[in-house]
């Protein structure tokens, strides 16, 4: 039995004829903050959906703590989707209650305190909140669980730089230290400091997985700089991507 928290072996997934994941292999350990990086269409969201159990692979194996994503893993995985999915007539406090009902590891106090810090009135309806505030509410809910694995799909894409800092510090201060956080994003420069490890995804495969500091030492540049180099060169070779 391997100790890896996430294990993916030769995973294939396509939407119709479009192959999105093409024989993806991946292992992620516990206790890490990991960046899942790649150009648009690389398969980041699809991979997170497979890990959360929303999608099934056509081929290959996806395991979280040795289990196939499903009922058993939902209790240890906290997933932030790339799109809001809450009914907009609900109040923030309704959502807090919903999460409390659904997840045994949900810490209501924590969620309410975080809302208070951000001056979010929990009696307000979701539809009356701005886009950025909605995203903050979602992140608060997701990070108020004491999960083994947090899957965050583009958690900072839609918010202003100050809110970005808040979200990153929320992630740093609230993740379960034995758990792993997997963050997909394009905004590498913003998240780079909080990551242990990065995974570069391209054409549905992992092309690089490394500790951030090792990578900086080897390449003598930031992850952001490396990302730009890697994906720029590829596009000049007549690849399918135009970055």
């Amino acid at each position: 039995m391997s100790a890896a928290l996430i294990q993916c072996q030769d995973v294939w997934k396509s939407y119709g004829k479009k192959e999105v994941l093409r024989g993806l292999n991946l292992q992620v350990e516990s206790g890490r903050i990991v960046g899942l990086l790649g150009p648009n269409g690389a398969g980041k969201t699809t991979l997170l959906k497979l890990l959360s159990g929303l999608l099934q692979p056509e081929q290959g194996m996806v395991l979280i703590e040795g289990e196939v994503p499903g009922c058993a893993t939902k209790s240890m995985v906290s997933y932030l989707p790339d799109k809001p999915y809450f009914a907009d007539w609900m109040k923030v406090q309704d959502l807090i209650e919903l999460f409390e009902d659904f997840y045994a590891d949900f810490d209501r106090m924590k969620a309410e305190q975080m809302c208070a810090v951000l001056e979010i009135d929990i009696r307000r309806k979701m539809k009356t909140l701005s886009k950025g505030t909605k995203e903050k509410v979602q992140l608060i809910l997701v990070m108020s669980r004491r999960a083994k694995l947090y899957l965050l799909d583009e958690p900072i894409a839609g918010v202003d730089p100050a809110a970005r800092d808040f979200i990153l510090s929320t992630i740093l201060n609230n993740y379960n230290p034995d758990g792993t956080v997997l963050i997909s994003t394009h905004l590498i420069a913003d998240v780079e400091r909080i990551l242990d490890e990065v995974i570069f995804l391209q054409n549905g495969q992992v092309i690089r997985q490394e500790l951030v500091d090792n990578l900086r030492e080897k390449e003598r540049k930031s992850v952001d700089g490396l990302f730009r180099d890697v994906f720029r060169t590829k596009s000049y070779e007549g690849g399918e991507f135009s970055c």
């Binding site: 206790g31 990153l168 510090s169 740093l172 230290p177 400091r193 909080i194 951030v212």
Partner: peptide, 17 residues
Amino acid sequence: VRELAAEAGVNPNTMQR
């Protein structure tokens, strides 16, 4: 470690190192 990491906005493992 966690306080310093939060202050610097970096990963706790990095600060630990």
